[in-house]
Design a protein around this nucleic acid. Sequence first.
DNA 1: CCATTACGCTACGACTCGTAGCGAAAGCGC
DNA 2: GCGCTTTCGCTACGAGTCGTAGCGTAATGG
Lengths: 218, 218
Amino acid sequence: MQSRTPASRAGRPRSAAADTAILAATREALVELGWSKLTLGDVATRAGVAKTTLYRRWAGKNELVVDAVAELFDELRLPDCGTLAADIEGVVLQYAAILARPEAKSGLMSVVAESIRDEALRERIRASIVERQKRLVLEGRARAQQRGELPPESDPEEAARTVDLIFDVVAGAVVHRTLVSAEPADEEWVRSFARILLFGLAGAGEDHDAAPTPEGRS
Amino acid sequence: MQSRTPASRAGRPRSAAADTAILAATREALVELGWSKLTLGDVATRAGVAKTTLYRRWAGKNELVVDAVAELFDELRLPDCGTLAADIEGVVLQYAAILARPEAKSGLMSVVAESIRDEALRERIRASIVERQKRLVLEGRARAQQRGELPPESDPEEAARTVDLIFDVVAGAVVHRTLVSAEPADEEWVRSFARILLFGLAGAGEDHDAAPTPEGRS
DNA sequence: CCATTACGCTACGACTCGTAGCGAAAGCGC
DNA sequence: GCGCTTTCGCTACGAGTCGTAGCGTAATGG
């Protein structure tokens, strides 16, 4: 019956201050050393705790970095700018700003790479990082449909697939731009990207500052 | 580099067979062990060469894996299917098939992550992997413009930016789908992606061919 | 035949890993 | 207050990997 009293177990409680210190030290070490040269002993020294304390709370380097990086995405919010295009640009700019930080660059790609051969790690990433981002897509899409900017969904299963697709396109494009092409996803780039996402390759070259045309439905 | 056979330096030449054996052994080790548990000593044993031979040819694990993974992308070709949509679907399916292989999953993401803090490594990746992919986008785009499916370019600098953008969108979406969402980029997904890429979010919900088409899902 | 380079092999110090053991500290129930 | 329980800091340890040096041998060009 220990399902009760989850917080009042007898014994000395874990220091919450140590948690935040360790995660902050992890991000600091990611910036200075990068993923490969980051050692748990170094993180422990930076955080002012013993190395054994780290191993008591996290299974290893992977899980620790996931938690440290996940906190970076807490600030991600969906703006309400009035139009779908503006909402997309706003959230993508936020996402790009987070990915521009060196601790995100160094950490995120590495743990995702590790997660390929570690199912539990992938689930941890999904739950603490990916799912929240996908929720933004879902919310923004629903909002656009309410405004009439996007056609409403008929099949809910089809809608879920579409949200997954959009999420992979948006997040993938920003990640690829930032980490592979290694160039900034600045306002100009985001504007071009949003234009292609909304109107496609064919419509990208046309006039697009005007209000949403009643679309000749070609 | 030595394509000119510069005066044919005296001494015993490097075994070309050893090169291919080492790269094959690297891919094999990537499949079985993944990036983090891959050691150069193990690769040397698999390839049947001495560990010192590895260090004489490659600076370290990063460079070795880049070369091993780069060979996977040699088979990438741009199909000529007659329409831009079909060309996109064809090349994306090829790219997805390569990324589905475990040695590509394990290796590519890890070396890209390492390249964030290693300028020389990033350049090596760009030259041997990324640039060839970008060329496919350039070629496909030119072909589509010739067919009249896309408007011709006016400003060449603007055109370069557009190609970079499309490349990040396409490659990023496939990579994110395969490695982050960890779901297959199969024909159905590729078809949906190509539709969004061509017509945008607004046009994607319309009935292009999703209606009761007798098209048997092969 | 000789200079030059690559190869296989062994050995080495330096480093990190993850764990075990110990005494001390900090809460909770009584 | 008094015990019980859990956490913490610290030290030490075997195991494993790293990258390099040294040596003798094999292969090629002049």
